[in-house]
Write a protein that binds this DNA or RNA. Sequence first.
DNA 1: GGAACATCTCAGTGACGACTGTGATGTTCA
DNA 2: TGAACATCACAGTCGTCACTGAGATGTTCC
Lengths: 109, 109
Amino acid sequence: MTTQLPVVCVPRLDLRAPDVIDAVAAASLIADPSRAAILAMLADGPVCVCEMAAALGARENNVSNHLARLRDAGLVRASRHEANARFLYYERDEAAVAAARAALADVLR
Amino acid sequence: MTTQLPVVCVPRLDLRAPDVIDAVAAASLIADPSRAAILAMLADGPVCVCEMAAALGARENNVSNHLARLRDAGLVRASRHEANARFLYYERDEAAVAAARAALADVLR
DNA sequence: GGAACATCTCAGTGACGACTGTGATGTTCA
DNA sequence: TGAACATCACAGTCGTCACTGAGATGTTCC
């Protein structure tokens, strides 16, 4: 609880707002419960769209919309199942996830 | 790039959606550029409302609204300047910030 | 006490985003 | 080939949230 208040109470006009666009972009994606759960589920390996929809209790086109946003952000990518190409499996791009984690950690550093 | 697709393509209905409410709450706060910048600025110590407003190029009541949300979440607290109590200085609650950081890191684990 | 300042609270407005429904695309199987 | 399935893309609707403006509270200084 050591609050270091400045001795002189003159507004510091040299204070610059830090660059937070990457953190905001990452946070905006996690700010939705469905997308946050999707990202957490994908931590354990690829998951099918229908599996995620069932786990979330959401419709598949709804999940698809969220996956499209995560895809556009580069956080996940899709590939069809080898044995049954009807199923589309999503997996995380760990490099992009690490970058998002770093951007968020920088704000809360 | 070792995508471990299941050999048998049967939807895993046992898949449960993980608990992400804490991460979503934290992300929702960071998802706004003003709040993200505020949290980042406060990492270096207490800052006055007028200083944050000047750095952000925002109006003071706007900044005050964002600070109220961060306050309600327990991430920041306010105290008046000892020498000049007209100025209200905000500082982070490092325990709460650490908890938010942990919740976010858990989703992107 | 009164004026100027710093900040808060609240209500109103506008914009962005989440969910839905529908139709389209690609895949499997009979 | 046709039916069923898995998923996507897009447009419409509705709710939430950020910014604004105005008024209220607390502080300092004359």
